[in-house]
Design a protein around this nucleic acid. Structure first.
Lengths: 151, 151
DNA sequence: CAGGGATAATTGAAACCTAAAGTATTATCA
DNA sequence: TGATAATACTTTAGGTTTCAATTATCCCTG
């Protein structure tokens, strides 16, 4: 039962540590670029809403963003308070609530999404196109693996 | 000023989205493996302490884990309350506080670190050794870039 | 058409997280 | 030496996050 780490296990732990480090470093930078405007989780919700003019339910947002529905309640509350989004009960199924952008929210997205996109591009500008392609491909493999594994 | 996205920008945004997705998917799985025992942030602190028998200050932990010192205050409070770690003022510089594992904390680490390591290895077992090596290399490039960029 | 089970969102408790302000201690240097 | 600056940690306020328990609604089957 006292098995030392195999080479292969060590390599995978190292991979996870590197992934987490990159995530946190990038997150820190991107957060500060957004700070004056809105929080990162609020931005994530806005960006999803922006591409779904018909609105999104809490459940679908929850799947897309990988956060719990209970969490979204608070984030949407704050977006609503800022006048950027609003709730609308689905008349066909009154359990469901659509979340939609207000006009103000849409304007806000027009301003802030390109800004954030530019922040990301700037942050990663130092990587070669080749490295970017390789990373995307390998992370897709990893995501597929992790996706299949969650039951 | 109304510049559409270049190919290169789009690719980098896609990379960031994939990275965040992998991080969140893995985090979700690893958290649930740890849940009965302790929280992920508590684990991260314990794992750092375990390899520094001389103790670690809040500042050094903050750098290693990429979290703010204010945050660590609470996490260490909880570890202290559970009897896993303790604070010790540095007599040479009374501003500094060393955080150290208790005996109980060390025992606990002996149990939980291998378990968590195994969880990571299991989670990523489906990736080829080749993919793991490529990812590690490319993420190292990315981390170096992000590290240099933070002033 | 009346329960009973599933689904959608909310609530509550506990922990995490950041930025900024506050407190104590040490270092600088005029 | 004594004012000032820098450093290390804590505190505070505002959000985020999860899990588990509730509430409201829908669907289905007898």
């Amino acid at each position: 039962m006292d098995n030392p780490l195999t080479q292969s296990e060590r390599a995978r732990v190292g991979l996870w540590i590197r992934l987490a480090r990159c995530y946190n470093l990038a997150m820190r930078d991107l957060r500060s670029g957004l700070r004056e405007e809105c929080t990162m989780p609020q931005f994530d919700v806005l960006a999803q809403l922006e591409r779904s003019p018909e609105g999104l339910t809490f459940s679908s947002l929850s799947e897309k963003l990988l956060v719990t529905a209970g969490n979204l309640t608070g984030i949407v509350d704050r977006l609503e308070k800022q006048g950027l989004a609003f709730r609308e009960t689905n008349p066909k199924d009154r359990r469901q609530t659509f979340i939609k952008l207000t006009d103000k929210g849409r304007e806000y997205c027009d301003k802030i999404i390109p800004q954030h996109t530019h922040d990301i591009a700037r942050l990663l500008a130092g990587l070669s196109d080749n490295t970017v392609q390789n990373l995307r491909g390998d992370l897709d493999k990893m995501a597929a693996l992790l996706d299949g594994q969650q039951e």
